[in-house]
Design a protein around this nucleic acid. Sequence first.
DNA 1: GCGTATTATCTTGATGTCAAGATAATGCGT
DNA 2: ACGCATTATCTTGACATCAAGATAATACGC
Lengths: 166, 166
Amino acid sequence: MDAVAFAVGQWRAEAPTLDHAPTLIFGRLARYAQMLAVMNDRVLAELGLAAWELDVLDTLTRQGAPYSLTAGDLERAMLITSGTTTHRIGRLEARGYVTRSRDADDRRVVNVVLTDAGRAACVTALEALLERQRRALDALETHEQDALTTGLRALGRVLRDAPPDA
Amino acid sequence: MDAVAFAVGQWRAEAPTLDHAPTLIFGRLARYAQMLAVMNDRVLAELGLAAWELDVLDTLTRQGAPYSLTAGDLERAMLITSGTTTHRIGRLEARGYVTRSRDADDRRVVNVVLTDAGRAACVTALEALLERQRRALDALETHEQDALTTGLRALGRVLRDAPPDA
DNA sequence: GCGTATTATCTTGATGTCAAGATAATGCGT
DNA sequence: ACGCATTATCTTGACATCAAGATAATACGC
């Protein structure tokens, strides 16, 4: 009986006419994501890195050489607003992990390039994170991992199609 | 090919020696939770409610009469810090959705009680949210829903046991 | 070419959250 | 009773994020 199942039990007593089944999936998704974030933060904190910093460095690093994207590319890849993008780039630039420069062909565009220090920090952090996550998954049965992969992929399909209101 | 699978593909080209498999689960969990939050926010915004507000109201409502918890209870149920708890209660009190009073037996304790308006807002919002979520789940096959439930429950087990560092 | 619409980024102001410490009440050993 | 540790909540300061609008550069119809 986890916290979400308990909460649904409470709700079924209080409002029996409502269908609370979706909470068993979406409520868990939200709560476990929050718990995952805490776990990740603990690993990254030891390396002096915040999750949002790794988010940027990861997005740039996995592009491969020359490890460059525009501000707009980063914004779309990370699902954040343009204001947050500006802020993130500024902080990482101050830390020496990226450089920022106007594009020569289209001067509205800002090119963000990963520095060697930024790439090194990214790889170190990702190694630690993946190691921690792999150990967590080791506690799952194979069929449970398969169920998660199947279920999450299906859920992604739904959430992608769902966005528009209604 | 969703965004997470694409990112893992990029990473496997850039750093083939790393085991990126955990990302297919944990990366999706994080990203889909963010997408879910956006979906929920859209539904709640039409009702003039923020997700963190429903979080409080929901926790109180599902207790059943007399719809009361201490500040500490709320803090632990919502996985937030004490400072955030104080802030949330204050905002909802100003909005007339909860009342706050010192406990008679232990004056360190603050009792938070849901008002009728708060309970009404909670039920209305939850109905809308569940309806939206149910429609999203309708797009899933039965076996996919089962896989999700199985997988998420197992993941919850792991994340609960994992918290302590290492 | 000119003027308007569009695009890319940045700025401003507000807000929710946390970490760390302050305040205040209770419990407990002697 | 007294003093110290513990507990519950609140305060303060910093910060990441967003919404909305500003700024600046490009595209495009005429």
